[in-house]
Design a protein around this nucleic acid. Structure first.
Lengths: 216, 216
DNA sequence: CTAGATTTTCAAGAGGTTTTTACTTGTATA
DNA sequence: TATACAAGTAAAAACCTCTTGAAAATCTAG
């Protein structure tokens, strides 16, 4: 029996509700409208590969289910955001146990999709952004920058990382255009919320202001 | 080499602080006073077995490291509270990746990024620096120098190494400009913290004061 | 295809950083 | 002690980086 069919059957029997996607692109499509509690991701997919899909899943634990036992791939994917990695052929009972582990850790918090810092709110599900209660209309790039900053609230985000992450979507992003986006983003936030939460770290990158004060 | 020793060495090299217990009872003893971010638990332990220790650990992710590949045990332990299960022999890189996954899910423990010496604190995530409780504003180069010194607290850092490491980022750093950076850094630390922790080793380089000479 | 939005490029000014130059102080060795 | 050389400091020049405006190029939707 095909492994996907087998899994679907087992999971249903266990009482889970299952949605299936038969390609990487379909997976992203499904995820754009539904918010499952867990994703089982095969690496060998038509269209987008699992490796390409993984980084575009945020906020949902992902268990990689793959025939690839190559250690480097495994490590890359785990470090790249996967919650667990199960190698085919696997024991169904073990997979079910690992699924339970993941679901146990997902605290059902309604704020899971809302990132907050100071007077700024970003809803990563609806892509709504507000500052000081006022709605802010951001472009794709500006949104990506703000989200990246809010997801790492106490870290300095280097320009290199910003360029890598942001420009996956954008045709061709250079350091100077990044500065422009940053400038526009800050202006919008300032206009709406009264203050600019982004701080330049000279020669390195940017961070959210006020984040990460140490005490003596 | 014994696997425990090997693990301890690898983990230390990765920058983790490691406490070891050599029996189940000792593990519980250690855990009653310390709150580690993660527990690696062997099943075959003198005294209390790993199976008995696991249910008494709460609130800390536990990765089981075991030679037992028996599926029922595995499932039981995962369902019984273990966060992950790695079977010996395992690839160290995979274990490190799975450790990262667990630590990622825990509330970000900010201490992991904090270097300390005397009254000086350096947060390598936020790049915040404080001396004697007062915040210190350092330039890129000064920060790099201080970080290098704090990362090797008991070693003399030669001028050559300083020049190599520091000037990767800086346009063109000579010995005389290095002296300048060093001078500025020391002044800032002195102004904020009351004392200057950096000590010149004549003809060689610099080291942190009070750091006992360690043998290579 | 056109209009509007988004992204990128170019340029200038402000401000912070790094290096240089010159000088003083300190240390080892003859 | 004298000398040579290393280390520390100060001021200013040279250099980068950040920010922002205006305009060109590109993309997207109707």
């Amino acid at each position: 029996m095909h492994i996907g069919n087998m899994l679907e059957e087992v999971l249903c029997k266990e009482g889970y509700r299952v949605s299936r996607a038969y390609s990487g692109t379909e997976a992203l499509l499904v995820l754009s409208s539904a918010r499952p509690d867990l994703v089982l991701l095969d690496l060998r997919l038509p269209g987008l590969s699992g490796e390409e899909v993984l980084p575009r899943i945020a906020g949902i634990p992902v268990i990689i289910v793959s025939a690839k036992a190559d250690m480097d791939d495994k490590v890359d994917l785990l470090l790249g955001g996967a919650a667990d990695y199960v190698t085919k052929p696997f024991d169904v009972k073990e997979l079910l146990a690992r699924i339970t582990v993941q679901l146990r850790q997902t605290a059902p918090s309604p704020d899971a999709f809302v990132l907050t810092h100071d007077n700024i709110q970003v809803n990563t599900a609806t892509r709504d952004v507000s500052a000081g209660g006022t709605a802010v209309k951001l472009t794709r790039t500006e949104y990506a920058i703000l989200k990246l900053l809010l997801q790492n609230p106490s870290q300095v985000i280097t320009k290199t990382i910003l360029l890598e992450r942001i420009c996956e979507d954008t045709p061709d992003c250079t350091e100077s255009s990044l500065k422009m986006h940053m400038s526009n983003l800050r202006r919008k936030l300032r206009d709406a919320g009264g203050k600019d939460p982004i701080e330049a770290v000279w020669g390195i990158g940017f961070k959210l202001s006020g984040a990460g004060n140490l005490q003596a």
